[in-house]
């Protein structure tokens, strides 16, 4: 391993550069030599992580499961070492037009349901699992209409959900799936006019991103220092606050993995990452 602690992150938006450049400066001031590598998609990032190209990954929940499952198959171990407070206990909702005849989940049979990118936990996988468990199976019982803005970004880009919400208002789909925070945001900004839509279903809470390390890296002094610095970042520090605001959190929390149970059930049901794991197995084992 090189001297510098290297982090991998996915460039889902140009602001990602601003965010991690800011963290780099902050870590340098605290005496931690930190740098980052950006990937255009999570699959390439997960593969590079197993290839030893960097030490810690800022992973989407789906990328975490990709890493965790591949680690298991390869006899290795993945650890979630930290996450944002805002990564915990998210929910997603399925909404319909307020005047819709759809009153319950079962009424979705034969309808069109708008979702985000195929690999979006929050706007596709978890809400579709919720519907499936409630009795309507995607593709079999209702049509799934995808709003793929950027495949490989695991739904980090908000565009897919916005497109789905607009399609719902336009009548191109009968229901739309989105994360609760976007539902709040779209309602406040007027993308979803007050009273125009109704929440049909809400998923159980689940967790989102985390910092992932592999194998013995969890004992590495630089990783320990990195985690310690993250957890020590306080919102009352004027140097830290702009970074936290940019990255959308108030405080870093310990990593926890119980919150990925819903997504695990979803990918088991839909076979979302099987092809990726098989391909990765051929290349990396």
């Amino acid at each position: 391993m090189a001297e510098t602690l290297l982090m991998g992150a996915v460039a889902y938006d140009p602001k990602v550069v601003t965010i991690w450049d800011g963290f780099k400066v902050y870590f340098a001031e605290q005496g931690l030599d930190f740098d980052f590598v950006l990937y255009s998609n999570y699959e390439r990032q997960v593969e590079a992580h197993f290839g030893g190209h960097f030490h810690v990954a800022w992973n989407s929940p789906l990328a975490w499961l990709q890493a965790e499952r591949f680690a298991k198959r390869a006899g290795r171990a993945a650890h979630a070492i930290a996450m944002r407070d805002t990564d915990r206990d998210l929910t997603s909702v399925v909404i319909v037009r307020d005047d819709s005849t759809i009153k319950s989940v079962n009424d979705l049979a034969g309808k069109k349901v708008g979702v985000g990118a195929a690999d979006s936990p929050q706007a596709t996988l978890i809400p579709l699992l919720h519907l499936a468990e409630a009795g309507v199976t995607p593709h079999d019982d209702f049509e799934v209409v995808r709003f793929d803005v950027d495949l490989g970004k695991h739904g980090d880009h908000v565009g897919g959900e916005r497109d789905a919400a607009k399609a719902l208002l336009d009548g191109r789909v009968d229901a739309a799936c989105l994360i609760d925070a976007n539902h709040l945001g779209f309602s406040k900004e007027g993308t979803l006019p007050s009273g125009a839509t109704r929440v049909l279903a809400q998923t159980k809470p689940y967790d989102h991103c985390n910092f992932t390390v592999l194998d013995g890296a969890i004992e590495d002094a630089r990783i320990k220092r990195f985690r310690e610095l993250l957890l020590g970042m306080s919102y009352d520090d004027p140097k830290v606050r702009p970074l936290l605001d940019l990255e959308g959190l108030k405080v870093w929390k310990d990593g926890r993995t119980e919150g990925y149970a819903l997504l695990e059930a979803a990918i088991d049901r839909f076979g979302t990452i099987e092809d990726f794991l098989a391909g990765l197995g051929k290349r990396c084992m």
């Binding site: 407070d85 609760d180 539902h183 709040l184 109704r198 929440v199 809400q202």
Partner: peptide, 16 residues
């Protein structure tokens, strides 16, 4: 309000 619970949860998360 119809989506009160959903929005309150998301708002609280954003505001800490």
């Amino acid at each position: 309000a119809p989506a009160l619970g959903v929005h309150l949860r998301a708002w609280c998360r954003q505001m800490g």
